[in-house]
Each structure stands twice: as structure tokens, then as C-alpha cells.
């Protein structure tokens, strides 16, 4: 978890706090989707096993929920420095080198996220133009699966650019380094 009080002062600038709030708020809402999915999948098991009446919607809606939730939490992972990283060498490096590596990381994330958001957007428009749908009873339009890619990666790009600006212009670094994997 973040310890805002330890962060350099620029991180408490209203604009930065607004971004933090937005990114974390979206991530929290999205996280609850997983709990909701757990509930509807349990419902599916019960109606199938007990009442022998499987649903038409649980499997597909769960996947859709998973897609939305996961893409929308990506930016928060960067915000909280929760991105699995081999920290061995970068931790051992001096402050200047590790700041430089961090800047490269932010720039790389921003560039990749923009590219993915853009091509995701093009794919989405393509599915809209030909009316692409899933061949299931729900027959969901495919854009509902592509939209979260666009939103999620756009948000990630904004977060990465903000971190880059904070680091390069104000020299402000978050307290937490990136972290190794905790599974």
C-alpha cells in the first residue's frame, strides 16, 4: 500500500492527487467485479447441479467482466509500483542509474500503452463497422470486449506519462520500487 506522507511534495499537487484518485478509484470498482463474478459462477454451479438448468449468460458475462476489470486495473498497478520486476541489479545500482532506468521504464510503458490503445481502437472500430458479434445466445457486440483495451491502456499511458514528467521535471520518485512476484 502507498504511504503518501513519505512521498516528495510534488506528489501531493492537486493534479497528481486527482490522477491518483481516479486511477485507484477505477481500480477499486473494477476489483469488485471479480467478487461479483465469483458470485454468478457459484450461481451457475447451483442451478446446473441442483436444478439441472444451466444458464446462457454466466460463462460469457464472466469473461466480459474479467476483461473489463483486468484492463482497467493496469494503470493502478503502475501507480502502486505493483509490476513484477527483477529488482536485483536495479536495486544495487546507484540512485542516478536507477532513476534513469525508471525513466526508461516509464517511457517504454507509455509508448507501448499508446500503441496498444491505438491499435485496440482501430480493431474496435473495425468490429463496429462490420457488426462483429459473438456467436452465442447473448450475441454480444465485439466492441464491448475491445473498449476496455482502449480505456485500460490509455489510462496506463496517462499514468506512465505522469510518472515520467514527475521524475524528469520534478525529480519526484515514489517511495516503493517495483517488486518481485508474490504468488
Amino acid at each position: 500500500m502507498t504511504h503518501d506522507q513519505h512521498r516528495p511534495r510534488i506528489r501531493s499537487h492537486p493534479l497528481v492527487r486527482l490522477l491518483d484518485k481516479a486511477v485507484m478509484g477505477i481500480a477499486e470498482l473494477s476489483s469488485w467485479i471479480y467478487l461479483l463474478i465469483g458470485a454468478i459462477v457459484t450461481y451457475e454451479v447451483v442451478v446446473r447441479y441442483v436444478f439441472n438448468a444451466p444458464t446462457h449468460w454466466v460463462e460469457e458475462m464472466s469473461r466480459l467482466g474479467m476483461v473489463w476489470a483486468t484492463f482497467l486495473i493496469l494503470a493502478a498497478c503502475l501507480n502502486q509500483r505493483q509490476l513484477i520486476t527483477i529488482t536485483l541489479l536495479s536495486n544495487a545500482a546507484g540512485p542516478r542509474v536507477s532513476a534513469a532506468l525508471e525513466a526508461i521504464t516509464f517511457a517504454l510503458i507509455a509508448a507501448l500503452a499508446l500503441v496498444i490503445a491505438w491499435y485496440g481502437f482501430e480493431s474496435m472500430m473495425q468490429t463496429v463497422s462490420i457488426g462483429r458479434r459473438t456467436n452465442t445466445t447473448l450475441s454480444l457486440p465485439y466492441w464491448s470486449f475491445y473498449l476496455p483495451i482502449v480505456l485500460g491502456f490509455a489510462l496506463l499511458a496517462v499514468q506512465a506519462l505522469a510518472e515520467l514528467v514527475l521524475l524528469l521535471v520534478f525529480g519526484a520518485r515514489a517511495n516503493e520500487p517495483f517488486e518481485p512476484e508474490d504468488i
Binding site: E122, S123, Q126, T127, I130, R132, R133, N135, S139, Y142
Partner: peptide, 20 residues
């Protein structure tokens, strides 16, 4: 979709998928 966006030039797709 992969055919449409050029990832592959020829893709083997089924009528069931295209029916969406």
C-alpha cells in the same frame, strides 16, 4: 479478426464463428 487486421493472410475459420 486476425485475417481482417492482417496478422495472417489466410485463416481457417468455421461457419459457427462467422455466424456471430
Amino acid at each position: 479478426q486476425a485475417v481482417a487486421n492482417g496478422t495472417v493472410d489466410i485463416g481457417i475459420a468455421s461457419a459457427s464463428i462467422l455466424a456471430g
